[in-house]
Nucleic acid binder design. Structure first.
Lengths: 265, 265
DNA sequence: AAATATAATATGTCTGCACATAATATTTCT
DNA sequence: AGAAATATTATGTGCAGACATATTATATTT
């Protein structure tokens, strides 16, 4: 390795681009685990984030270019690039060729929502999962499904309603339309054993999807199925998925009162 | 290197990365811009995704290792690595050292929720944004806020309620507690001009946050503020943010009936 | 047979270098 | 001056090679 003593992340008198003074040089004692002698992209990531958090670099500021940062931090440009790329993906930085990299002015927080198979969500909480097929028919779709999935009104579809339970209590009521044309095998699946959702996840990959969340009032029948009262507030997820231009499925997922969707940001 | 004629990705007949936007669905003869002779990581990404979608590689399957894929596709391992890494981050693949890379068995769909500043969300739809401060006081927090933010019951906090409007109509009702200790400058901010949310975004960075979504019924006063009826179904977002171990703010955002949160997956 | 050490291996990451590309800045031309 | 051509520059990406590290498989010991 280079025998030259490198300016590692420890102590950097960095020339603020336009940032005037304030400097805050007092971050001197920030030490890294830093077992390896190499500077990892994660430490660069952390260091940049630190400077943003401590407002050495404020929203809108232009930060040093990759080569400069690499020099300052004692690592290769590729390493800095990796760190900055991730930070941009996370929404902390805005990057443009030639124009440089700036701290995002509107830190759009990107929440990652993991949308699991319901069964796993329930079992993950240590509850007992159960599932019941309520109704199933094969027919042509109603107009709103046609426009939603962009399929013709005379297409062959499966219409399924089912109920998912946690510890015996109604948890989610699912109403779903599946295009048989797009996934013929589903006609043979035993949807009283495995939920359509789970079957589709395993057998019908999709290329695009759309998901929306809202709050609605329980209708009379919805209330009955979910064992609650009419006009209870329900959390509704609507999902539609395509494979290429083929509409696969469109589902309304109604959650029992009290449901909360969580995410860390 | 191998002089053998490789199956490069140059002319692969499938799957546009995203683009979509209707246009011609029968995009059979997709040609890459492909000016360069090099194989990009995005084409590797697309190719692997294609193999998953066409079920050449099924959920649970072990896929070839990086070096093999690199050879097959005629590119460097680093390029394959980049593609596979992204696919793993997107939830399509599971990777483990030594064990190799498999197609994810439970394609937990990772929806990316961009949570913008409300003002931008409204203006982005071409509507006129307005904001009004309803109420503001400085006092000690109620118990639920203490536990939520993990601050002491006698801490100095700001309690703010405000209303955000789109085209003059109530859009979102915000109730917020801000720790003055954590961000002293907010005491001087003019929160009748700029919303607390926006002020905080610009001046009080945070390191962790928590967000949850649910459906609730409008209370009498909430209904009045949002100009709707009592017991209307409202979409509720609860957000809490910390900087390190310092609780910064905790907010309840109540959206007017009809609100929908969207995301593509 | 169970516990422990050791080898093997696929992914993870860093480096140095080169060239591509998009966007800006500058110069030249009309 | 205004438009068009040209140079400049920061990021984006590709490559080969090297070493790090987690994890599994195998061999060795108790």
């Amino acid at each position: 390795m280079s025998t030259k003593t490198q300016d590692t992340l420890q102590d950097m008198p960095h020339a603020a681009p336009e940032a005037s003074l304030d400097a805050t040089p007092g971050a001197a004692s920030r030490t890294w685990p830093e077992a390896s002698s190499q500077t990892s992209w994660q430490s660069v990531h952390a260091e940049v984030l630190h400077r943003i958090h401590t407002r050495q670099w404020k929203p809108g500021d232009l930060i040093p270019k990759e080569v400069e940062l690499a020099e300052q931090l004692g690592c290769a440009r590729a390493t800095v690039n990796r760190a900055l790329r991730e930070l941009a993906a996370e929404g902390f930085l805005d990057r443009r060729r030639k124009a440089g990299t700036r701290v995002a002015t509107h830190p759009v927080r990107r929440a990652k929502l993991d949308i699991p198979v319901i069964r796993l969500e329930i079992e993950g909480r240590g509850q007992k999962y159960a599932y019941g097929l309520l109704f199933s028919e094969r027919r042509t779709p109603p107009p709103e499904i046609c426009t939603n999935l962009r399929v013709s009104p005379d297409s062959d579809m499966l219409h399924i309603t089912s109920l998912h339970l946690a510890d015996g209590k109604p948890y989610m009521f699912e109403e779903r339309w599946v295009s048989v044309a797009a996934t013929p095998e589903i006609a043979n699946a035993d949807l009283s054993k495995i939920s359509a959702n789970e079957w589709l996840v395993l057998h019908a990959p999709y290329t695009k999807g759309d998901i929306s969340f809202s709050a609605v009032l329980a209708s009379e029948t919805e209330a009955k199925v979910l064992r609650t009262q009419k006009d209870a507030p329900l959390f509704l997820i609507e999902r539609t998925t395509w494979n290429g231009d083929h509409g696969i499925t469109s589902a309304r997922l109604l959650f029992a009162p009290g449901y909360r969707m969580h995410s860390a940001i």
